[in-house]
């Protein structure tokens, strides 16, 4: 039971898919200009991830080795199409703002990554927990980045004004750089730095060492 619980909680911070595995970065940059898009995208990805992991895990004993990846992608793609249609039908404005990024969940390394690394070799229930944990881990980072970008980019959260803008008689000048993709890179990088400072075991061992001038002269 404790181990099953770990499947759920580990990916939140300790093995977070974005900050530790650096997976799913593309959508993390693209949809985090506001909290509402980040929230919708997180929900969509989590649902797809949980369902695909459950399905792939359920058929894992009979997966033909030769077409393993194709089968996994077929399952993921079908779920993504359904999700995309669902958003278009019931959250039309939101689906327009997310444009192609819901469809691009198919190519999100996170989904296929969990299918390959976990669901393919584990029973259904742990796979579902693992998928849910990873989906929530992804969501935490997206919401953090989205909150920072929306708050400092336009002074609002979920559309409500938090920092009074200069143009409305307040004091806050929006930082437009926050709405551009590079700012998401900086924020994700910053989060990686903070998490790895607090948990040094996450830091990778350097693959090479930079020699000083004296050392190079000797060798």
């Amino acid at each position: 039971m404790k181990q099953a619980y770990a499947h759920l909680t580990d990916p939140l911070i300790k093995a977070n898919p974005i900050t530790l595995h650096i997976l799913g970065i593309c959508s993390a940059l693209a949809v985090t200009t506001s909290v509402s898009t980040a929230l919708t995208m997180s929900a969509a990805l989590t649902v797809v991830l949980v369902l695909s992991s459950a399905m792939i895990s359920a058929i894992r004993h009979h997966m033909p080795t030769a077409i393993r990846l194709i089968v996994q992608i077929t399952i993921i793609a079908s779920l993504v199409i359904v999700m995309d249609l669902f958003l278009k039908a019931f959250a039309f404005e939101m689906s327009k703002r997310l444009s192609i990024f819901v469809g691009l969940i198919v190519t999100n390394c996170l989904v296929l990554g969990r299918a390959e690394a976990f669901a393919r070799r584990n029973p259904v229930w742990p796979s579902v927990l693992d998928a849910l944990g990873n989906g929530l881990g992804y969501s935490i980072i997206l919401l953090t980045v989205g909150t920072i970008r929306e708050l400092f980019g336009v002074g609002t959260l979920l559309g409500y004004e938090i920092l009074p803008l200069v143009e409305n008689g307040g004091w806050f000048r929006p930082m437009h750089v926050m709405l551009l993709a590079p700012s998401a890179f900086f924020i994700v990088g910053f989060l990686v730095w903070v998490i790895r400072s607090l948990r040094p075991e996450q830091a990778e061992t350097p693959e090479f060492r930079i020699l000083s001038h004296d050392e190079t002269a000797q060798s």
Binding site: L85, F86, A89
Partner: peptide, 9 residues
Amino acid sequence: AAVTLTPFY
């Protein structure tokens, strides 16, 4: 999904 959701879309 397409048949049931397209009318809403």
